[in-house]
Amino acid sequence: MKSVILQSASRYLLPILLLFSVFLLLRGHYYPGGGFVGGLVAAIAFVLHSLAFGTAETMKMLQFTPLSIIPVGLIIAAISMLLPVFFGLPVMTGLWIEQPIPVVGLVGSALFFDIGVYLVVIGVVLTILFTISLETH
């Protein structure tokens, strides 16, 4: 599986795809995209890398187990869901900072929620694929 072309391609593809995934995540509120899609694209970027270099190599590069991203993402999403409760609003109500921020646009709890989704999706996909591929090889 470790062909040279794939290796050099994925070396360039990884950052580009990651950047693209963040882009998808951030602009999801306005254009097609969002946390799910962004997370999936990011995961595919890593999967490609692992196909080219081997899963162990990718894991080394990541420096943390994908499993540990899952709780992080879940907690971010859960907190942004719970936050409105402290303002006396129902769970999950959107909270917004009224000042728009460049590139991203309006920032609100929905964005953090999306970031949580993004992280969970990456964590989940990588956990599943890497656990299996480490087991298989």
Binding site: I70, P71, L74, I75, A78, L82, V85, G88, L89, P90, V91
Partner: peptide, 23 residues
């Protein structure tokens, strides 16, 4: 009617699980 209490029985298990996932 705002009554987050209803969902509290759900959230308490969510957060218990989340804390356990960290440990």
């Amino acid at each position: 009617m705002i009554d987050n209490q209803i969902i509290a029985t759900v959230l308490v298990h969510l957060f218990t699980a989340l804390i356990q996932l960290v440990l």
